[in-house]
């Protein structure tokens, strides 16, 4: 099993006192599988994604990625997982503004130490970014920036791709194209895909769907 989540709990301190975001969530995902995670705003989707991506630590529960429980790891250990095993596509793109598109795309692959110029070159081509490679992110449109972010993630060939509303900032047409690409490439690399979305249409395109309500899978 690529990913196993067991009884995950997380509570945040807010102005109105402690707020339990996740109340014992569990799920599983295998290689080559695609899973949509849907739910209302505030249902805990993003928090769950962050915990799985090792961006945050749970209060209790287990997150086993590729056989390793990342819930108990320190910052450096979780950084290793983020760098080598998991790839996250953010809603906010999170590109590095001072690097060119080319450098941004190859960035994570180089971080992970498995840069493959042919592979990310072909990725850029399929994403329609070949003409933009020498530009800086601020010179691109939102859709182009998101494609750069996706290319960056896939260029590193992660085993597990996590995507947080990857098309949330894009118009419908662009969103469709981008989604096709994600699914195509995930299938090609044999990675598992866990995508957070509130779009029913997008969720329909995944093999499996889970719905999160008030911190619990329903």
């Amino acid at each position: 099993m690529l990913l196993t989540v067991q009884d995950l709990r997380k509570t945040y301190d807010t102005a109105d006192g402690p707020f339990e975001v996740l109340r014992g969530v569990g799920l599983e995902l295998d290689r080559g599988e695609t899973l949509a995670l849907t739910g209302e705003s505030g249902s805990g989707k993003s928090t769950l994604l962050h915990l799985i991506g090792g961006l945050d630590t749970p209060d209790s529960g287990r997150v086993v990625v590729n056989g390793a429980d990342i819930a108990g790891m320190d910052d450096a250990g979780r950084a290793d997982i983020r760098r080598g095993t998991v790839g996250v596509v953010f809603q906010q793109f999170n590109l590095i503004p001072s690097l060119t598109v080319a450098d941004n795309i190859s960035f994570q692959a180089r971080l992970a130490g498995r840069s493959d110029a042919d592979w990310w070159g072909s990725l850029a081509g399929r994403m329609g970014l070949t003409a933009q490679l020498g530009k800086y992110p601020e010179q691109l449109s939102g859709g182009q920036q998101q494609r750069v972010a996706i290319a960056r993630t896939l260029a590193a060939k992660p085993q597990l791709v996590l995507a947080d509303e990857p098309t949330g900032n894009l118009d419908e047409a662009t969103a469709g194209v981008v989604m096709d690409l994600i699914l195509e490439l995930v299938a090609e690399t044999g990675a598992g895909l866990l995508m957070v979305t509130h779009s029913i249409a997008l969720a329909e395109r995944m093999q499996r769907r889970l719905h999160l309500r008030a911190g619990e899978i329903t």
Binding site: L55, A79, R82, L95, L111
Partner: peptide
């Protein structure tokens, strides 16, 4: 600051 955050999200440890 945002770049630092991105770098960490992409797997660079804080200490590094």
């Amino acid at each position: 600051r945002p770049v630092v955050r991105t770098l960490r999200a992409l797997g660079v440890s804080l200490r590094t």
